[in-house]
Write a protein that binds this DNA or RNA. Structure first.
Lengths: 202, 202, 202, 202
DNA sequence: CTATAAACGAGACGGTACGTCATGTCTTATT
DNA sequence: AATAAGACATGACGTACCGTCTCGTTTATAG
């Protein structure tokens, strides 16, 4: 039944991913080396390469699990939900294994189609879930109108996701300033109400 | 007067920076090497290290000049100005020397205080200028109210900058989808009017 | 009677040895690998190691069979017999599986007592047989005197063997020049009559 | 005048060669590694590869100097000179850096034209010198006749060299028995007088 | 007009990581 | 038990860059 040959030890995978995260915390992306990860995991370099094709793939998997923890508890209103997701995402990006690695991976992915899809599937889509869920809830609450055209709805969701994730990421990593309660509140207000003064509308 | 010894050839600096950009276009950040840049510039490695302390500093300078070209022609309205700046910024990020390099540098800067300031001074602040200028113009047009508290005004400008730059950057590089006229228009609408339906306000 | 468990397939041994010789021909001693031999023989690496302790032992056995083919047809005189054995030995050493492997094995054997004995038993003694046989015949023909002391006789046989085998080996592999009819004839003349001009003797 | 660039430290060469010999003594040819030699010599692996293309070339040079020490003091007669050279050569082959390495190199050279010439030039020809010199002296003493045809003379010298070097090499390394005074004497007698009993000649 | 001092090219140098390969052992399921 | 398959720890391979160094050469100012 089982395939021939000695099977891979399954615990090894998670040991390696944990070692990778530890190395990211200690050394950062640019100083992370395969040899070091192997040493930390108590594993041979060949075992690493048997399971991942290189640094990038390895780090994607190591970081991806962090993004699994994102959740969207129902806080009762769209604004509160947005604030919740912003704070959660910011907390994640603030971790040295996550934020910097994500940037570096995305930078690398601009020249690597396969990596781009891997990142999207393992990391980005797991964030976008929250946006979709939040919009669903807001509609049930009547805070957002129903959009009959599913394509237009998707476009809007994408846009909102880019705005939220982009703003937090830029604030936290590019501007390198804290995403605290105050910033989160004003950002959420901007997102919901827009920049124009109330009277300027319509 | 002048210090003794042979003076540095000033053209060399720009030759090296041009070579750096060429290498970024051809190889990308992760495969760019000092030796290769030296070869391209027709310069010895020692000359490179005499003028820059390493890869990161070199690339910051090489990329910074690209961000000097950003301009904000007056298009007559806040919305039009925002669209203009979004498209300009997107065009810049789409260039392989600029977008990916910026991400990689920022990733690296999370563990390097000096680099962070260098990036801020040479790259980020040059973008933020446009936001400040745009807000000034909008006020003169009456599209934005005057904010008496300069600190609050600064916070808002920072927020708007993070939202605009972050959204474009996320769309272009993380989501890896085009920042075209359509997206720009809907993004600008969202920025100005917010997510909530008109009636939900107040 | 028979031990429990599945018995070893006997054909496997010769398949492996043939694969080893093929690998020696194609790759040579230094590039021969156990994995490659296993692959060629259609056999798992474990099977190899169950039957031989390593590369050296395996190659000794693989090469030894070649030395079994050496024969000494009676050509009617000591000189003719010497020429016959020289040409046969030279033909063997010229084969890429044999000559170079023998040298490499002997080189290795200088640090490995067990290997030394294995080579002696499986390879060297099979050559020496011919010398002993040739001397026997020469005595029957009256070309060589009887030596009453068996120990002295053995010493002389050893010496003659070292001279013949050594000269051919050195010519073929160290000097890397052909052991052809001409060389063989002059060598045999030297062996039988010596270097000194006839008159210089006694 | 001098070529541009930092010149190579000349002492490094001999340090590396000494380290190579030390490694050969300690580990033997088959366990000698470039990394280990580099470590012993206090030198980076890259420095090794900058100066030698690989293990074989390195060992040829490391071993060659040993063969420079061979000399042929005039002992008054051809027989005595032969015995002298045999003992010297045997002493050399008995050294673990020399004998086994030579065999291994020659084994490798059967598949490498360049290595073959390198060995010939650096090692073999230095031995052959002694034979040529010895024959010269023997002629002056009247022990050998003058050979008018230089080509025939060369062939004979080659033959004698193969016989002497081959016999000693085979005795010492293949048969693995001592080349002592007794053996040397009987070998020399065989070389000079031949195998046939005196009466069998003519 | 000659010191002297720095810039500059070339390339050697000690390191370190790369990704691959072979070793010999082991763990499976199958025969 | 032997076998095929293949995972595994180990460690060398030869290459590539790193950032530093040591040369000879060139180009400026200062004495």
């Amino acid at each position: 039944m089982g395939r021939p040959g000695r099977p891979r030890r399954p615990e090894t995978d998670s040991a390696i991913l944990a070692a990778t995260r530890a190395a990211l915390v200690e050394l950062g992306w640019s100083k992370l080396t395969m040899s070091d990860v192997a040493k930390r995991a108590g594993v041979a370099k060949t075992t690493l390469y048997r399971r991942w094709s290189g640094r990038c793939d390895l780090v994607v998997d190591a970081v991806a699990v962090l993004f699994d923890d994102l959740e969207l508890p129902d806080r009762g209103s769209l604004a509160a939900d947005v604030e919740g997701v912003v704070l959660q995402f910011a907390a994640l990006l603030a971790r040295p294994e996550a934020g910097a690695s994500l940037l570096a991976l995305v930078a690398e992915s601009t020249r690597d189609q396969a990596l781009r899809q891997r990142i999207r599937h393992s990391i980005v889509d797991r964030q976008k879930r929250l946006v979709l869920l939040g919009r669903e809830r807001a509609r049930l609450r009547g805070e957002l109108p129903y959009e009959p055209d599913p394509e237009a709805d998707g476009r809007t969701a994408d846009l909102v996701f880019d705005v939220i994730a982009g703003a937090v990421l830029h604030r936290a990593l590019v501007s390198a300033r804290p995403v605290d309660e105050g910033w989160t509140r004003t950002f959420t207000a901007l997102l919901l109400d827009g920049l124009s003064p109330t009277g300027a509308r319509g």
